[in-house]
Design a protein around this nucleic acid. Structure first.
Lengths: 117, 117
DNA sequence: AGCATATGCTACGCTTTATGTAGCACGTCA
DNA sequence: TGACGTGCTACATAAAGCGTAGCATATGCT
């Protein structure tokens, strides 16, 4: 499969709008996870694989190729986020907070954040 | 397929950590896109479908079920983001800016943000 | 009433994507 | 030499996604 690129049609959008290319890229399995696992250190292929619950090397390699292609990840003595990759990470980090709130909300529901009936 | 939930094992992680459930949920095709398309107005099923480049109704319905299940989307006279859904959107909105920078970077590469050769 | 149109949604057959296991070629260090 | 770790690929199987068709209900019009 091809790596989504801004300025080109992608799966689900022919406009070439950059955001569509990005949503296509991030909406692939393991992509978000890989970025997440690289959040605070470079990892070798196998270390990364084990952090990602032993994803098949086929997939990991494909995702890494896409992420390198997009300039999000670099492979210089292990895999690490690039400058732009770190910027992208900034948008992903708050998800942890949201997820924790999500879990709390499920434990004691209907507590303010839900919609009124 | 089942909707990922915090506190339960999900695809690619058995720990039940909320962030893993969220990354599983968002890493499915069309999920990010649906949230994105609902960013500033409620849409009917068919309107949403047409915004998503005529995604198959099978998929849209499945994703909507997952998003409703997760409390991100509500279906009251069309589909719309809930309170938590809007909070989640806040993490996704900056992606547009990132994507635009991405596109600009590709137009004139090696301009500071790339890695040095 | 009769008819057109719009809605949300499901069935079903086919294609694309992901998974799991095995293993290769290379490098390092004893 | 041989035991290990590395990044990566092949290939068969399973899962997810896709496209088209169409149903049941609701609303509005004449």
């Amino acid at each position: 499969m091809t790596t989504p690129k801004p300025g080109h049609p992608v799966r689900g959008s022919t406009t070439g709008r950059p955001i569509m290319a990005l949503l296509d890229l991030l909406g692939r399995r393991w992509t978000l996870r890989v970025i997440w696992e690289l959040r605070d250190e470079a990892l070798t292929f196998r270390a990364l694989r084990s952090r990602c619950d032993d994803v098949s090397p086929t997939m990991l390699n494909r995702r890494l190729a896409e992420l390198r292609d997009a300039g999000i990840v670099a492979a210089e003595g292990g895999y690490a986020l690039t400058g732009p990759g770190l910027e992208l990470l900034q948008a992903i980090l708050p998800l942890q907070r949201w997820a924790d709130d999500w879990a709390a909300r499920r434990d004691r529901p209907a507590a303010g954040s839900g919609r009124a009936p």
